[in-house]
């Protein structure tokens, strides 16, 4: 967060280290259609899209910050807040839905005390929803850090979550 907006009601976000961003942006400077790949590599580097990094990027690749922000908030992949150490994605695809993914998601929310899209205060877990991961044969499915857990029932959730630190 830039210094002026860190005051008032805006929540405090961690300091952002901008060294290394130059090397990251370099291949994209002057190319066309690079906004999404740029955001993707920023997110890979930081885990999310920190505002100072976006501000720097806008100047560097000569795209208005408003447009970067517009694109970043349009796509589900981009996150504007830091995420937890473990990313839980509960599949909300059709096959998973009719096999009870809602109940699975509710149990995760209950245990962690957060809703979809939120992160636990200790940054241990972030809960996300995904439209379909394509493992429909094993519905309902969730992935934690890309490890799939299939054929879930609500009563199995607690144990699975406990195995992630």
């Amino acid at each position: 967060m830039s210094s002026e907006s860190a005051t008032g009601t805006v929540e405090q976000l961690p300091e952002v280290d901008l060294s290394g961003i130059e090397a990251l942006l370099e291949p994209y400077v002057g190319e066309k259609g690079t906004v999404i790949p740029v955001l993707q590599s920023l997110q890979e580097h930081y885990g999310y899209l920190p505002r100072p990094a976006l501000e720097y990027t806008a100047r560097r690749i000569r795209v208005p910050l408003s447009r970067l922000f517009g694109v970043a908030t349009f796509y589900a992949q981009f996150k504007m807040r830091p995420r937890g150490r473990n990313i839980i994605r509960v599949c909300k695809g059709t096959a998973c839905h009719i096999q009870g993914s809602e109940k699975v998601g509710e149990r995760v929310e209950e245990i962690l005390g957060i809703k979809g899209g939120e992160t636990t205060p200790d940054l241990r877990f972030t809960l996300e929803e995904v439209a379909c991961i394509g493992a429909c044969a094993l519905a309902p499915v969730m992935t934690i850090n890309d490890n799939p857990h299939g054929r879930l029932t609500p009563d199995r959730i607690k144990k699975i979550l406990e195995s992630y630190e």
């Binding site: 066309k32 259609g33 906004v35 999404i36 790949p37 694109v71 349009f74 589900a76 981009f78």
Partner: peptide
């Protein structure tokens, strides 16, 4: 190869093309 960024509407051809151009996929 362009990697999509998670928007169902980008399956629609004109939205997909906008997305390749680096815009919001509308």
């Amino acid at each position: 190869i362009k990697e999509g960024a998670g928007a169902f509407v980008c399956g629609e051809e004109t939205a997909l093309l906008a997305s390749i151009e680096g815009k919001r996929g509308m």
